[in-house]
């Protein structure tokens, strides 16, 4: 039973990671691509880890997988923030159909 549930979680995870990769290719600029890259991690990789936890229960492997989930949350959000800010300061242009940019006043 728990084996079946864990496999379902694995499949959900792989599918959403795939969507994230498609987003990386299709979306127009760095900022939009990061949106897809960070969000697919939450349901993608975290559900793979959660499936691992269900499969092994409260054992050494299961607990490690469970603790990796909050760590992944913090690391991926902070990394996304650093990448977005870094690429803005470096001078990467926003997409030409961008409607509003409040941040450029700050950078002057």
């Amino acid at each position: 039973m728990s084996n079946t549930i864990s496999i379902i979680f694995f499949i959900i995870g792989v599918v959403f990671d795939l969507f994230g990769c498609i987003g990386l290719i299709r979306l127009p600029d760095v900022y939009n691509r990061l949106q897809s890259a960070t969000k697919s991690v939450t349901l993608g990789t975290c559900s793979i880890l959660f499936g691992l936890f269900i499969k092994y229960g409260f054992s050494a492997i299961g607990m490690k997988a469970l603790i990796a989930i909050p760590l992944l949350f913090f690391v991926s959000t902070v990394a996304a923030h650093a990448l977005v800010r870094g690429s803005y300061i470096f001078g990467t242009k926003l997409w030409d159909k961008t409607v509003i940019d409040d941040y450029k006043d700050v950078q002057k």
């Binding site: 969507f19 498609i22 987003g23 299709r26 979306l27 127009p28 600029d29 900022y31 939009n32 897809s36 926003l94 997409w95 159909k97 961008t98 409607v99 509003i100 940019d101 409040d102 941040y103």
Partner: peptide, 15 residues
Amino acid sequence: RVLSPSMPIKPGIVK
């Protein structure tokens, strides 16, 4: 947003 053919995005930075 990624999968739909027309890609409904309208990005911007807000304060």
